[in-house]
Design a protein around this nucleic acid. Sequence first.
RNA 1: GCCAACGUAGCAUAGCUGGUAGUGCGUCGGAUUUGUAAUCCGACGGUCGGGGGUUCGAGUCCCUCCGUUGGCUCCA
Length: 672
Amino acid sequence: MIQVTLDDGTVNEYVSGITAGEVVIDANGKKHGCVAAIVNGEQKDFSTQLTESCEVSGIDAFSDDGMHILRHSAAHLLAQAVMELYPDAKPTIGPAIDRGFYYDFAMEPIGESDLKTIEKKMNELSRKNLQVERIELTDEELQEHFVNNPYKLEIINDKLEDGDSSTIYKQGDWYDLCLGPHVPSTAKLMAVKLTSVSQAYWRGDQSREQLVRIYGIVEPDKHALKQTLSRMEEAKKRDHRKLGKDLQLFHVDEEVGQGLILWTPRGAVVRQELQDFISYHLRRQGYHQVFTPNIGKLDLYRTSGHFPYYQDSQYPPLVEKDLMKKLSDEGCSCGELSNMMKAGDIEGYLLKPMNCPHHVKIYSSQARSYRDLPLRLAEFGTVYRWEQSGEISGLTRVRGFTQDDAHLFVREDQIAEEVLGCIELVQVIFETLGMEDYRVRVGLRDPDSSKYVGSPEKWDAAEQACRDAASSLGVNWTEEEGEAAFYGPKIDFVVKDVIGREWQLGTVQVDYNLPERFGLEYKGSDGNTHRPVMIHRAPFGSMERFCGVLIEHFAGKFPTWLSPTQIHILTISEKHAQYANEIAALLKDNDVRVEIDAGDDTIGKKIRTHRKMQPAYMVIVGEGEIESRTVSLRARNGDQISGLSLDDFISSLKQEIQEKTSVPSLVPAKSD
RNA sequence: GCCAACGUAGCAUAGCUGGUAGUGCGUCGGAUUUGUAAUCCGACGGUCGGGGGUUCGAGUCCCUCCGUUGGCUCCA
């Protein structure tokens, strides 16, 4: 007999050899909803035999660990189904991922339409209730089992070196190399859905074989699957690319260029309001606004190191036309031209890929003393980067974007405080926008790497400054080794939007490198010359990206202060146009963005039409309103109040805009 | 950049195995003058992403380029 301690603390006696699964059933009943067990802190299959006294608890399918196991097992089921349908395919790897699972196969390309067939097969295999068996093999046996699959053999060979145990999991006739644990039976995998098919490289290496990757999601039951699918639908409705079109916020035109955003009037309002808001806080924090041009000489970027290092992701340099003609007359080839540029033999201009060199030059345009520091130079600077064509998407990955950029030139003893200031700015803006769920990642150097510039002491101090800043704010933060830039540690901001998706926005980076490269100096209080440290910060990344995130966060229903049009005035009939115009004029005088519809549609039709543009409020006026000099106000959710006096309306609206209330609230919620 | 799928009027879509384009919304015109999620009638609008090919004939098949989407890789 053995003693088994359950997770509620009770101790039961069982015969030796009982399985973990049997214990879980005994403890939680048959409908336990678990997919595996934890034995003495380790995840184990239900089939694991217990021969010594131990602690056992079940892993609930809905828990993080449970979902991981479920996903991993679903990947196996997917592979089994694919192998039945495409016997020539060779399975490679199939892990669980955050939102589901995938499996990579070496096989002829398939299309989305094939997914349904595979899914059907998976359902069929699931219904067969195949037991999932764990089998331990010797290394030789393992090699034999996968003799026809070079990918698995490669993994096995790597594994053997690591000395991992050699196990396979078998369900029906099919088996796969895996450490487990897995669900006890394919019956646990009845709620699966294949979502997409795409391509991946073997081991993520572009130079190696292309594989077919099939993605899917799985849930513990059909109900949960339905919920997840509807959440995905919701996310799709919020897609800023779709809303950007529907709400006429921005446009990308093939003839202008991929990834180059045209901000249309309504979107420009959102961007401008946001920029004004950020600028206001920058001024309060002692930043100085600067403007710099969109291009700079190549040599500038040679000095900064960016031109040679990031050459592949820059627009090609501009060469002066006389020089170009001369080189062309001499029969200079493109390759030669490129080499001469690299070597610095000819000069040209670069569309600026970042703002720092220009700001550095503003710093060094004057002699600086310690009294000048910190010097904070801010610019909404537009930069251009040659992103890979396949990466470009909506507002989040573009080739021209405007950073909410600033560079702080500081003394070493000021680093901590200035980093803190950067984070405070982010905090106030996130709070105003109702994005209070965010976290901070502190990127530290990899202690085993030698790629970093600057002395270890400076690094220690800078890293500590970043940690201190992060921890002083009471937000979640994590440290990540090896995530620092080569010139200094950094802090990244990651926000969670209202439907739980995370977005990486901007960063704060401490930089010892650039001041060195440009030979920046200041005169210290000791009379000696010192080198400043730079802090790069673009806490929201880019205006494009940030607006994109906001569009999705608000699902296009912007707070009143950000709404492209704040008020739409609708008349009951054309007879009321004059009153509508009067109100509009009044609102415009008060700096409110307003639109009028005094056309001959019915009021129902007008509401329907204008709803699509998501104004913060609709104002409806007819005979009654004209007589009493009031308005009827309609919120986005359909709630309404009538008889609101013009004065009250305008003053409370102004207040809401001024306070940047994150949810329009002039119309009280219906109380019934 | 790589792989797959896709690309029909401003938007959303129909068009099976090839026989020279439909529909809804929007727009415009007319009628209507309306009280909180679609009033009626009519008209305009497409060389079916660009170019090339196969064919008597291509939106539909093939090639190529451009773009979009989903991934991979990359991201100062």
